[in-house]
C-alpha cells in the first residue's frame, strides 16, 4: 500500500477545500471498499480526508413529506430508521440485504453510492481492465463474466454496480446533493452514473472534488407498498447476481403507478422505465407483468455465461409484482 497522509475534517467547506488542494486525495467514509482497494493497490491516494465527523449523519423529513438522508449516515442507521421502514420499506430491505452487520455499521450512504465494481479483473493488478487502466482491455468479455452486465454495457466494460441500496434509490427517484468549492449542486440518481461507452473509468457525473452531502427522497406514496428482493449464490452476505426493487399501486385490477429498478444487471442501478411504461394503466395480471419484463429485457445483450440473468430478472419482475398485487389487495 502506498503511504498516505490523513486528515480528519469537521465541516463541509473545510473538507472540500482540503480535497481541492490535493488531486491525489480521497474522502474516507466507512472505508469498507476504499481501504480494501488500497490494500490491493487499486486505489493509491496520497491523502485520506476522513469525513466521518462531518455533521451529515441525520435523517429528516422534508417539508414536502420526503426524506433527507445525510451522506455519513451508516447503512445500519438508514435501515433501522422508522420513517425509512414505514415509507420506503424496499429501501430498508435493500440495505439489510447488503454486506454484513459489521460492514453495515461502518459503511456510509455516500460511500455506498461511490463503491466500485466487484469485477475480479478490476481488483487484480496483474490483469488488464479498462475501468482501472483506460485502454488496457476487458478480459471479462471473453473470461469470467457470469455475474456481469446484460444491460447498458459496452465492448469496453461489462462490470456491474454492486449496490443494493442504489437499486431502491433508483426506484424512488432519489436526488444526490453535493458540495464543491464553487458551491452546492444536485444530481438525480438517473443522471448520477454515467453511461459506460468507451469511458468506463468515468463512473459518475459528480464534478471533480465534489463531496456527496446527502440523498433526498421525494414524497412517494406508492413506496409504502414496496419490496426489495435479492438473488445471490449463498443465502446471506454475498453480492447479488440479480435483484429488484418494486413498488405498486393497483386499484380495481388496474396498475395506477409502478416503480421498478433492477440490480446486478448494469453498470448502474437500472430503472426499468420501459417496463413501467408498459404496465401503467394496464391490467395487474401475470401476463402483463411478463410482457413488461420482456419489454425491458428486449435490450439485453448477453455473454456466453450470463444469459441466465435474462430469465432470472424476468422471473423476479413477475414474482415481485404478483406479490405486491396480493399485498395491495389485503
Amino acid at each position: 500500500m502506498r503511504e498516505f497522509g490523513y486528515q480528519r475534517v469537521f465541516d463541509v467547506p473545510g473538507a472540500v477545500a482540503r480535497l481541492g488542494a490535493d488531486p491525489d486525495a480521497r474522502y474516507l467514509g466507512g472505508g469498507t471498499n476504499l481501504v480494501d482497494l488500497m490494500k490491493a493497490g487499486v486505489e493509491r491516494p496520497a491523502l485520506l480526508i476522513d469525513v466521518r465527523e462531518l455533521p451529515l449523519d441525520g435523517i429528516e423529513t422534508t417539508d414536502d413529506g420526503g426524506l433527507r438522508i445525510g451522506a455519513t449516515v451508516t447503512n445500519s442507521d438508514l435501515a433501522a430508521h422508522p420513517e425509512v421502514r414505514r415509507r420506503y420499506p424496499a429501501l430498508a430491505q435493500a440495505v439489510l440485504a447488503g454486506a454484513s452487520g459489521q460492514l453495515r455499521n461502518m459503511a456510509t450512504v455516500g460511500g455506498n453510492l461511490l463503491q466500485r465494481t466487484r469485477c475480479g479483473y478490476f481488483a487484480d493488478l496483474a490483469k488488464p481492465c479498462n475501468k482501472r487502466v483506460p485502454g488496457s482491455g476487458c478480459p471479462a468479455i471473453e473470461g469470467e463474466h457470469h455475474n456481469h452486465a446484460i444491460l447498458g454495457a459496452s465492448e469496453h466494460c461489462v462490470a456491474i454496480h454492486p449496490s443494493d441500496m442504489g437499486v431502491a434509490l433508483a426506484a424512488f427517484d432519489a436526488v444526490i446533493s453535493y458540495e464543491t468549492a464553487d458551491g452546492p449542486g444536485e444530481l438525480p440518481l438517473a443522471e448520477f452514473y454515467l453511461p459506460v461507452g468507451d469511458t468506463p473509468h468515468l463512473e459518475t457525473a459528480l464534478p471533480s472534488g465534489a463531496l456527496i452531502t446527502g440523498v433526498t427522497l421525494p414524497p412517494t406514496p406508492v413506496a409504502a407498498v414496496s419490496r426489495y428482493r435479492k438473488v445471490r449464490e449463498r443465502a446471506s452476505y454475498a453480492f447479488a447476481i440479480g435483484s429488484i426493487a418494486a413498488a405498486l399501486d393497483v386499484q380495481d385490477g388496474v396498475v395506477r403507478e409502478v416503480r421498478l429498478a433492477l440490480g446486478a444487471v448494469a453498470s448502474r442501478p437500472w430503472r426499468a422505465q420501459e417496463a413501467e411504461r408498459v404496465l401503467t394503466g394496464g391490467p395487474a395480471s401475470a401476463d402483463a407483468f411478463a410482457a413488461a419484463a420482456d419489454a425491458e429485457l428486449a435490450a439485453a445483450k448477453t455473454l456466453p455465461h450470463n444469459g441466465y440473468k435474462v430469465t432470472l430478472m424476468r422471473n423476479l419482475v413477475v414474482a415481485m409484482l404478483t406479490e405486491l398485487t396480493e399485498e395491495a389487495a389485503r
Binding site: 474516507l28 472505508g31 469498507t32 466521518r52 445500519s76 452487520g101 459489521q102 461502518m106
Partner: peptide
C-alpha cells in the same frame, strides 16, 4: 467500536 460491531481489518487505526 462505540458499542457497535465492526471489522477491524478495514478500520484504519488512525481513524
Amino acid at each position: 467500536i462505540d458499542g457497535r460491531r465492526a471489522v477491524s481489518c478495514l478500520q484504519l487505526a488512525i481513524a
